[in-house]
Simulated scan of single mutants.
Amino acid sequence: MKLECANCGKVFDKDDDILTITDNQLILRYFDWPDGRDNAFCSEDCLCDALMAEYVSVDEFKEMYKEGEEE
């Protein structure tokens, strides 16, 4: 089996480093393949794309969680 980035499909060489999630809760909730093929990423950018993580401003963050605020 060739191992490739779960986001962009880049094929890993035997000397490449692989970025992977090691938190058990995330693994159980987000990844499906027992062989880990959907938890192998070539870069932080690909990992962030796959997990839909992005930088936002402080104001954007506060706006996202405004509903939960108590005055």
Rank of each mutant, 00 (worst) to 15 (best):
C48F: 12
Q25G: 04
M64T: 02
D32W: 08
N24D: 15
K62D: 14
V56T: 13
N24W: 01
Y65V: 06
E67Y: 10
D45T: 10
D17Q: 14
Y55N: 10
E54W: 09
Q25L: 11
Y55F: 09
W33C: 10
E69P: 00
M64S: 13
C46D: 07
G36T: 04
P34H: 11
F41H: 01
I21K: 00
L47Y: 02
A53Q: 14
I27S: 03
L19C: 07
L19P: 00
L28E: 10
T20N: 02
A40I: 01
I27G: 03
D16S: 14
V56C: 09
Q25F: 05
A53F: 13
K66I: 04
M52W: 06
I21P: 00
E44A: 02
D17K: 15
D15G: 06
F31H: 04
D38I: 12
L51M: 15
A53D: 15
E60H: 01
C46F: 04
C42P: 06
F31Y: 11
Y65E: 07
S57C: 04
E67C: 04
F61N: 05
R37Q: 14
A40L: 05
A53S: 13
L28F: 07
E69T: 11
P34I: 12
F31M: 13
D15Q: 15
E67L: 04
D45Q: 15
S43T: 01
Y65C: 04
L28C: 03
R29D: 14
D16H: 15
D49V: 06
I27R: 02
D16G: 08
G68W: 11
E67I: 08
T22R: 01
A40Q: 03
Y30R: 10
F61S: 10
F41A: 00
A50V: 08
R37S: 14
W33P: 00
D32I: 12
D35I: 11
V56G: 07
D23K: 03
A53M: 15
F31Q: 02
D17R: 15
R37T: 14
C48A: 15
N24M: 10
A40R: 02
A50C: 13
L47K: 01
V56A: 08
N24Y: 06
V58A: 06
D59M: 03
A53I: 15
A50F: 07
D17N: 15
L47V: 03
A53H: 12
F41S: 00
E63T: 05
L51A: 08
I27N: 02
A40E: 05
F41G: 02
L26K: 09
C48L: 05
D16L: 13
L26F: 09
V56N: 08
F61A: 07
N39S: 03
E44W: 07
D23Q: 05
S43C: 08
D45V: 03
A40D: 02
K62Q: 14
L19Y: 04
W33N: 06
W33D: 12
T20K: 10
E63S: 11
C42Q: 00
Y30F: 08
T22D: 03
C48V: 03
G68F: 14
E54L: 06
Q25Y: 08
G68L: 11
Y30D: 12
N39G: 03
T20G: 01
E63P: 01
E63R: 10
T20P: 00
V56F: 05
W33M: 09
D38M: 06
V58T: 08
A40W: 03
R29M: 09
C46W: 01
E69H: 10
C48M: 12
D38W: 05
S43F: 00
D17V: 10
